[in-house]
Design a protein around this nucleic acid. Structure first.
Length: 270
DNA sequence: GGGATTGTTTAAAT
DNA sequence: GATTTAAACAATCC
């Protein structure tokens, strides 16, 4: 389940590996997943750099077009050696001049990729409506966007138009760190607590990037390696374990249709 | 073989 | 009209 820290880790690894590389050959294996644009037009073009916006992976081309990936639950983008046997759910293979293979795999096929011009990308409503990058703005900026809202705080954290890149893992971890119950009405949370939450979100994401992201099952970085941040989870996926703060057993509830793990003693319901 | 899994879109409700 | 919530959807794994 790649969220901001995982996609950021992939982007950094890919940038180091494909920057300046020519695309020599393109094989679209699953057209329904590789669905936007003419992929054969990539041949002969060069990647200038790789970046990230929200959970989107952006591979920039020398003609200013952008190869965009959304990995959703189980997508992987990584650079394999020329002798790599193609994994079962490989949907796109780009052969680079080095003969390394840029692979897009996705067992569930919820993810997708496409080629966009700058104009197409910025006119894509999903892209245009994305909220601020949580690591590129202040806690105050984020808190202002949550202040006064009547929705549950966890729903807003997961809403990509409110703040970009947050998924279930980092929502649960930051709510625990801030001592806020996931079902709290955002507008009822004292402003200083909102600030604490936004600072906690930034801190947990920085730590997760430092650890190379979190591997629950599918996530791998651009080198095909697992992340390490799952070993630092305090609550996510730990239902039934004692709370690291008070020892009370961690519980789960559904919020916004998502499983949320929390401590009913340490996390205050506003 | 049914349930669980996720992020996003769409529709419905307020 | 804006905000919020729920349902639908993609497809596979166990």
């Amino acid at each position: 389940m790649p969220e901001l820290p995982e996609v950021e880790t992939i982007a950094r690894g890919l940038d180091a590996q494909v920057r300046g590389q020519h695309v020599q050959r393109v094989a679209v294996i699953t057209p329904s997943v590789v669905r936007v644009g003419d992929f054969s037009s990539l041949v002969g073009h060069t990647f200038t750099y790789v970046s990230r916006r929200a959970k989107l992976l952006l591979l920039h081309l020398d003609d200013s077009r952008i190869l965009v990936f959304h990995l959703k639950m189980t997508g992987r983008v990584w650079l394999a050696g020329r002798d790599q046997v193609l994994p079962k759910h490989t949907h796109l293979v780009l052969t680079l001049a080095s003969q390394d293979l840029l692979l897009f795999e996705d067992s569930r096929r919820f993810g997708f990729c496409g080629i966009f011009t700058q104009e197409q990308l910025h006119h894509w409503s999903f892209f245009a409506r994305l909220g601020p990058e949580p690591l590129e703005c202040s806690p105050e900026t984020l808190a202002e966007r949550l202040k006064g809202r009547k929705a549950r705080i966890k729903s807003l954290l997961l809403d990509q138009t409110v703040v970009a890149g947050v998924g279930n893992i980092y929502a649960d971890e930051s709510l625990f760190a801030a001592g806020i119950h996931p079902k709290s009405t955002a507008g009822n949370i004292p402003y200083d607590q909102l600030l604490t939450l936004c600072a906690s979100l930034q801190k947990v994401m920085i730590e997760a990037i430092r650890a190379g992201g979190s591997t629950i099952s599918d996530y791998r970085n651009a080198y095909g390696h697992s992340g390490l941040f799952q070993d630092q989870f305090l609550v996510y996926g730990k239902k039934g374990d004692p709370c690291p703060g008070c020892g009370q057993i961690l519980e789960t509830i559904k919020v916004a249709g998502r499983t949320s793990t929390f401590c009913s003693h340490c996390q205050v319901l506003y």
